[in-house]
Amino acid sequence: MISVQLILLIIFGLAAIWFGWRVFMTSSMVRSALSLLASMVAIGILFLVMEAEFLGVLQIMMMGTEMSIMAIFMMMYMMDPGGLGQMDMYHQKNISIAAGVIVTVFIVGAALAADWGTIATQFPGPHEQNRLLGMEILKRSMMIFETAGVTILTGMIASITVALSIKNSVEK
C-alpha cells in the first residue's frame, strides 16, 4: 500500500543516506559536520513521519547543538579545517570499504530476517505518548535513565568545577 507517509519515509530516508554520504565526500570540516547534522535531522523527520512526535523533536533539538559543537572542536584540532589542502575525510580505504559492505549486508539481513509483527493501526496521540514515555522512564527503565542522568549531571558539575576562571585584569 503506497501512502503519503510511505513516500515521505522513502524521501527522507534517502535524504539521510545522501547527507551521510556527503559527510565523507567533502574536504571541509564544517561542511562535513553540517552534512551529518542534515542527515540526523532527516532521521528526526522520519520519527515525525512515523508519528513519534517527542522522539522526532528531541532528535532534531539535540543534534543541532551536538553537531555544531562537533564542528567547533574539529575546527580547533584539525590542521586544515577549511579543506583548502583537499584533505580526505576517510582513511584506510580498503578496510573501510570491507567494513562498510559487511555491516550493510548484516543490517539488511537482520532487517529482512526479523519478525516485525503486525503493523500497528491504533496508537496513542502525542500527549498520551509523552505520558507513557514518562511512565516508562520512571518505572521499568528508571535504573538505566537515572544512572545515565546522574552520570551526565556529575560530568557537568565536574567540568564546571575544573573550568578555569578567566581573569580580565592584566597581572604582572
Binding site: V57, L58, M61, G64, T65, A71, Q129
Partner: peptide
C-alpha cells in the same frame, strides 16, 4: 503540537546553526 514547549527550543537551536552557516 503535543510537544510545543520542546519544539520552541528545538527550532531556536537552528537560529545558531543558520548564523554559523
Amino acid at each position: 503540537l503535543g510537544t510545543g514547549a520542546l519544539f520552541i527550543n528545538a527550532a531556536l537551536v537552528y537560529i545558531m546553526v543558520a548564523l554559523l552557516m
